[in-house]
């Protein structure tokens, strides 16, 4: 029996929203090969109105995932390459004096897009980082004392490169917390890699990609994702997991209440993407590593070396109510 076979699913039926989501999932799966779980998580993150941090080596498709997400979902896209000399103004924009009109005119920066790819976010100075992070948190930016709302939906995909930590400004825990999920893409398997080598050029595929939904439909999807039923037993489960992260001797800093909220929201969105009739423990487990991994601080003497191992350890120590 395959995993996931027993989970009761809702039919797609005539629901156009759900059909659009399903199409988006398939389209993404055609470009990013063999990464269905990550695509599902990325979509869940987006539907839960969270931001995504992708951490992996160069060349594994981080940018490709972000760009195709924007394309498929029909979102306006801009990319900010973070460098050490990036200034906040380069992100949010500047007021420019126009001689003709004799007035200052605001020139919006790349942040005024619906989907932002913040590439190598840990290369920029904390000042530049915090400009982006403020935008992420508030969905608005302040320039010259004026507050400007950002377009909705607003979704940031940041990438960072774990192997190359020299000359970087690692994001502090408080800022990592702003990202709903952190994903690792990992290498494709042999068959998928072969397909990548001999198959169609991904860039071309990307330009041919058609939007399956509109920003307004996406907002409706986000609203529906929040409606997925979550039983008391499942809330108990989430609480038990959070409690375990706080009292486990392997973990120094456990999940905050905000982390618990994030876990619940992500699990709901995941259940929605999977068309589950309620949030199941499987949904919680599926998003747990992505949601909790970057929020936990391992204890110095733990034997679990990676965040994924640590999260799996937590999952293995908590009974499902």
């Amino acid at each position: 029996m395959q995993r996931g076979n027993t989970l009761p699913q809702l039919p797609i039926g005539k629901d156009s929203e759900r059909a659009a989501l399903e199409n988006a999932r398939q389209a993404l799966g055609e470009i990013i090969l063999g990464k269905d779980d990550q695509i599902e998580l990325a979509l869940s993150c987006l539907l839960a109105r969270g931001h995504l941090l992708i951490e992996d080596l160069p060349g594994l498709g981080k940018t490709m995932l972000a760009q195709s997400l924007a394309r498929v979902l029909g979102l306006s896209f801009s990319r900010i390459q973070f460098t050490s000399d990036l200034l906040p103004a380069d992100i949010v924009g500047v007021s420019v004096f126009r001689k003709a009109s004799g007035e200052f005119e605001f020139q919006p920066g790349p942040v005024f897009s619906q989907l932002i790819l913040a590439d190598e976010v840990n290369r920029a100075t904390p000042k530049a980082q915090s400009a982006l992070l403020e935008a992420m948190e508030e969905h608005q930016v302040s320039v010259d004392g004026q507050t400007r709302a950002l377009p909705e939906p607003f979704f940031v995909v940041a990438t960072q490169n774990p192997a190359d930590q020299i000359g970087t400004f690692p994001l502090p825990e408080s800022q990592l917390d702003r990202f709903l999920m952190r994903l690792e893409l990992g290498y494709p398997n042999e068959q998928n890699e072969r397909e990548l080598i001999v198959g169609e050029d991904r860039r071309e595929m990307l330009s041919n990609l058609e939007a399956t939904t509109t920003p307004d439909a996406l907002k409706a999807l986000q609203a529906s994702a929040r409606e997925v039923h979550m039983s008391d037993a499942l809330v108990d489960y989430i609480q038990a997991l959070v409690r375990e992260t706080r009292k486990s001797p392997d973990i120094d800093i456990g999940l905050s209440p905000r982390g618990a909220q994030a876990l619940a929201a992500a699990a709901r969105a995941h259940a929605f993407v999977r068309r589950h009739s309620g949030v199941y423990p499987d949904d919680v487990q599926a998003v747990f590593t992505a949601v909790a991994g970057h929020r936990l601080k391992a204890a110095g003497n733990t034997s679990h070396r990676t965040a994924a191992e640590l999260c799996q350890h937590v999952l293995d120590s908590v009974a499902i109510p």
Partner: peptide, 8 residues
């Protein structure tokens, strides 16, 4: 097992 979902 501890932490094993019904589906698993």
């Amino acid at each position: 097992r501890r932490g094993e979902t019904p589906d698993a």
